[in-house]
């Protein structure tokens, strides 16, 4: 039967800390990322990717790009690696026997809600911090709490809600896209076992790239709006 689980499943405990299949995949992605960052940094492909990313973010952030590029670039690369890691053969298809049922040994990193949520909260903190730093605390809070007239009080209230809804929309956009892709591939492979899932795999490679791009680009756009001075 088709195995679909909305949350990552626990494989074993280390000192009472549950180790899920998604966590193992995350560690593998992190180690690969680390190796690439340390030993591959001078390879021309890596340089070309970082250069084109830099010039892409420069169109949004202009003179502040150098300051935020380490964050945005690593966000993009980490998300794209973890999206594509979930598509490798063996991920979600090697099963371990566990009690009555069986659970997959590996699960895509971003197909577990915890990872996108952590990234979204991190992004939220960076956006607020940069807003406070570059606009000034008093000026920045003025956007949210403004007692000049009833209308601006209401607008400030809406601004507060929209700031917090950024976390939810960031987290669920990434999680929803990647998880839906994995469910799609699982269902197609279940219906027609041979070759039929290939075009969907190609689509998922594209979706993984687009979602990484959208996540980092939206972060850049929100950063630039947070740092913009009010007129």
């Amino acid at each position: 039967m088709l195995h679909i689980s909305i949350k990552a499943e626990k494989l074993f405990d280390i000192f009472g800390f549950p180790v899920t299949n998604s966590l193992i995949a995350t560690e593998i992605v992190l180690i690969a990322f680390f190796i690439l960052a340390v030993w591959g940094k001078n390879h021309f492909i890596v340089r070309w990717i970082t250069h084109s990313l830099y010039s892409f973010f420069e169109t949004i952030l202009h003179d502040k790009t150098a300051l935020f590029f380490p964050f945005l670039g690593s966000l993009f690369l980490f998300i794209i690696f973890s999206n594509w890691f979930g598509l490798l053969p063996g991920v979600e298809s090697i099963f371990l026997k566990e009690g009555r049922g069986s659970i997959p040994l590996l699960r895509g990193t971003t197909a577990d809600l915890n990872v996108p949520l952590a990234l979204a909260i991190l992004t939220f903190i960076v956006i607020q911090w940069s807003g406070i730093k570059y606009v000034g605390l008093r000026q920045y809070l003025k956007k949210f709490i403004n007692l000049k007239n009833p209308m601006s009080v209401f607008v400030g209230f809406l601004e507060i809600i929209s700031e917090f809804s950024k976390i939810i929309s960031f987290a669920f956009r990434l999680f929803g896209n990647i998880f839906a892709g994995e469910v799609l591939i699982a269902v197609i492979a279940f219906l027609i076992p041979i070759l039929a899932s290939f075009p969907f795999l190609a689509l998922e490679i594209f979706v993984g790239f687009i979602q990484a791009l959208v996540f980092s680009m939206l972060t850049a756009v929100f950063l630039s709006t947070a740092m913009a001075k009010e007129h």
């Binding site: 679909i4 929803g176 959208v214």
Partner: peptide
């Protein structure tokens, strides 16, 4: 193209909310 992808991401987020709702209904 940049602005288009941004706008598509916002529009698509709505569908993702619906997806999340349906996943919650399905799996809980």
């Amino acid at each position: 193209r940049t602005t288009m992808i941004l706008a598509i991401a916002f529009a698509e987020a709505v569908a993702i909310y619906a997806l999340v709702i349906s996943l919650i209904i399905k799996f809980t």
